[in-house]
């Protein structure tokens, strides 16, 4: 199916967010077709999290517009179709794995047992149901956080550094699941500063200092930059001199 004819799942128009003199997001125009995985690639402090928070409606834009599924954000009702995995785990350390998941599913009004079990199976935490989140390893907490973000089967999913601290085997499974979600029509925006994850996305947005530097598939960006390393391509678009010499 071609995304070109469908209205964009995620759209921003001249979106800006300033904190005093700092332009966290400095005029971003994007329109992302549904059913694909987008990688938001940039270093720490480049504005990835702020852009996602604007799209989820947790921050109000200084100017411009953020739209998700055609609805201008912030919009509370739309949030039932949005999944958001924060960079910090955003789970309750004193609650068990099951209780955390049940809590978030309950907020979407979808805390039925079968759904919770399926979400736990996906992140391979079914045998840890009763464990307090406090006692989980960093990677397991990440997995629980992901399960909480996906338990209500959202149409648009924002994942902020989802695979930090997750072992490679499970990471492959995560991406396989992300791919399955797009098969059901979901749109994913995955923020990462790790370039090796970028190749798994359908399309990449290079972001730095609150601006989108370049957009395209990984291959396309490498070709345009005249390099075969994505890292060098990023530096090329960022205008860092002499970086893309290794073509």
């Amino acid at each position: 199916m071609s995304g070109q004819t469908l209205p964009p799942a995620i759209e921003t128009v001249a979106l800006r967010k300033t904190f005093g003199p700092i332009h966290a997001v400095g005029g971003v125009d994007i329109a992302l077709a549904p059913g694909r995985i987008y990688g938001l690639i940039g270093p720490n402090g480049s504005g990835k999290t702020t852009l996602i928070r604007l799209l989820v409606g947790l921050a109000r834009a200084t100017s411009g517009e953020a739209r998700v599924l055609g609805t201008r954000m912030p919009s509370r009702p739309l949030l039932s179709r949005v999944g958001y995995m924060t960079q910090s785990d955003g789970i309750y350390p004193e609650l068990s794995v099951w209780e955390n998941l049940r809590f978030f599913a309950g907020l979407y009004g979808r805390a039925d047992r079968a759904r919770l079990l399926a979400a736990l199976a996906l992140v391979e935490l079914d045998d840890r149901r009763g464990t307090p989140a406090l006692e989980l390893s960093g990677g397991m907490r990440r997995r629980l956080s992901l399960a909480c973000a996906l338990v209500h089967e959202p149409t648009v999913v924002f994942l902020d550094e989802p695979t930090v601290g997750i072992d490679p085997a499970l990471r492959v499974q995560f991406w396989a699941h992300f791919r399955r979600l797009t098969g059901g029509g979901a749109t994913l925006l995955v923020a990462s500063h790790v370039m090796d994850e970028a190749d798994r996305c359908d399309e990449l947005l290079f972001i730095r200092d609150g601006r989108v530097l370049a957009r395209g598939s990984a291959d396309e960006l490498r070709r345009r930059a005249g390099t075969d390393r994505l890292e060098d391509a990023f530096l090329h678009f960022a205008g860092v001199t002499g970086a893309a010499a290794a073509s």
Binding site: P77, L79, V82, Y84, T86, L107, Y108
Partner: peptide
Amino acid sequence: GTLERLLATP
């Protein structure tokens, strides 16, 4: 960060 997560729900 749980309040942030909470507010990202309806």
